[in-house]
Amino acid sequence: MPLAPGRLLLNPERVKTVPSCFDSWDVRFAPPPVLPPDYLLYMTSAWVSMNVLMVDEHRVVVEAGEIPLIEFLQDWGFEVLPVNFRNVIRFGGCFHCVTSDIRRRGDLQSYF
Rank of each mutant, 00 (worst) to 15 (best):
E13T: 11
R28S: 07
I70D: 00
L10W: 00
S100W: 14
P12R: 00
R90H: 05
R86Y: 07
E63V: 03
T99M: 12
L108E: 14
L69I: 02
W76L: 08
T99R: 09
E57I: 08
C97K: 03
P31D: 06
P32M: 01
L81Y: 08
M43D: 14
R28L: 01
R103W: 13
L40E: 15
G77C: 06
Y42S: 10
L35E: 02
W25G: 02
L8T: 03
W25I: 02
W25D: 05
Y39D: 07
E63T: 00
F22D: 01
W76G: 06
N84E: 15
S100D: 09
N87E: 14
W47Q: 02
G65F: 04
D107Y: 15
I70L: 04
A4D: 05
R103A: 12
V62Q: 01
F78P: 00
G93D: 08
P82Y: 10
G93Q: 10
I67V: 15
V80M: 06
I67S: 13
R104T: 12
K16G: 10
F78Y: 13
V60N: 02
T44H: 07
V34Y: 04
E13Q: 11
V55S: 06
E79R: 14
V48T: 02
S20T: 10
N84S: 15
R104H: 06
E57Y: 14
M1F: 12
V48G: 00
V55K: 09
R103Y: 12
Q74A: 09
F112W: 14
L69F: 00
G93L: 08
R103C: 09
G106A: 09
R14A: 11
V15F: 00
S110M: 13
W47K: 06
C94M: 14
P5W: 05
P32G: 02
R28K: 15
I102N: 08
V62I: 09
A4Q: 04
V15C: 00
S20A: 14
G77V: 04
A46L: 11
L10S: 01
D38N: 12
P36T: 10
P68L: 12
T17V: 11
F85G: 03
P12M: 01
F85T: 05
V98R: 06
R14G: 05
D75V: 10
P12W: 00
I89H: 00
H96K: 11
V83E: 05
W25Y: 12
G6M: 04
T44L: 13
F22Y: 13
H58C: 11
H58Y: 13
R14Y: 12
R90V: 08
G92C: 12
N51T: 05
D56Y: 13
M50Y: 01
P5Y: 04
P36D: 10
R14N: 06
D56M: 11
N84L: 12
P2M: 09
E13N: 14
F112N: 10
N84P: 15
A46V: 09
C94T: 03
P32D: 03
R90E: 05
P5V: 00
L73Y: 01
G106P: 07
E71M: 08
D75T: 10
Y111F: 15
